[in-house]
């Protein structure tokens, strides 16, 4: 009569666990990443704030959305630990969208990396949901694929209707691929603890879009809405905009 009693306790324990899991609080995530969009030291204020780029062109920004995906951290042992199902749409108008947190095993980490945009696989895999829902207005309907980065605004230097600036940057294959990987060192190696949340704050300086790698004057290229050489050049430029400014252990 030993066996049934063992089973009995097994059943009892499993049922406790099942019941317990529902009562327990959600465990706290270990890491939080926050994006702060700025323009050359000035905070980004949509619509109203006027900025000047290095070519002395004045401009305003009315909309800024971009995808961050495939976030991972690298350990001192050079192992890459990815965030699972890692797709985030940063929307300047929505504060909550500018931070995300996730679980990662306690370890010593040296760097953080991510893609600006949505990896090519998800561009060819049909209807998605969540951050990748076409409802978010970041999906092309004539030439399937995500708009990886969208910035709109106005500038007297733009000769198109209403002096518009319109950058819808997409394209995920071959020479037209605008996916850029950003790799940021965490400076002093830091340890992620189980009970503490570590916040990494990343500054995104959009002023870089005009000249970080290629000189792109608003006067010459106020609009880019198709994949191609210009889109790839703009992506090169904004890929240089990301910089870690602070790491907070809470």
């Amino acid at each position: 009569m030993k066996m049934p009693s063992v089973f009995c306790w097994l059943f009892f324990l499993t049922s406790c666990r099942i019941a317990g899991a529902q009562v327990n609080k959600q465990p706290q995530p270990d890491i939080k990443v926050t994006f702060v969009n700025i323009i050359n030291k000035l905070p980004l204020v949509l619509d109203s704030a006027k900025y000047i780029n290095c070519f002395k062109e004045t401009f305003t920004i009315s909309r800024l959305n971009y995808y961050i995906s495939n976030v991972s951290l690298q350990t001192t042992g050079k192992k890459t630990i990815p965030e699972l199902n890692s797709y985030h749409l940063i929307n300047e108008e929505d504060t909550a969208s500018k931070s995300f947190s996730f679980f990662i095993s306690p370890n010593q980490y040296t760097s953080l990396s991510f893609l600006i945009g949505v990896d090519s696989l998800k561009n060819v895999s049909g209807a998605q949901t969540g951050a990748l829902d076409p409802l978010n207005g970041m999906f092309w309907t004539w030439n399937t694929g995500y708009i990886m980065f969208k910035m709109e605004g106005n500038s007297p230097s733009s000769s198109v209707v209403n002096n518009k600036i319109e950058y819808h940057i997409g394209g995920f294959s071959g020479a037209n691929n605008v996916l850029r990987k950003v790799h940021l060192n965490l400076n002093d190696t830091f340890f992620i603890h189980q009970e503490k949340i570590t916040e990494i704050i990343i500054k995104v300086d959009l002023d870089k879009i005009w000249n970080a790698q290629h000189d792109l004057k608003i006067m010459k290229t106020p609009v880019c809405t198709t994949p191609g050489v210009l889109a790839a050049g703009i992506a090169d430029n904004y890929s240089k905009a990301f910089e870690i400014i602070k790491i907070i252990h809470q």
């Binding site: 409802l135 309907t141 399937t144």
Partner: peptide, 27 residues
């Protein structure tokens, strides 16, 4: 231009010379 059957309907639904709707509108 369309690489997957699932996303094809987005083109006619939102096309101003076709169904001229929006996804939120349809839903």
């Amino acid at each position: 231009g369309i690489n997957h059957l699932e996303v094809q309907p987005l083109s006619p639904i939102t096309g101003t010379n076709e169904m001229a709707e929006t996804l939120p509108g349809v839903l």
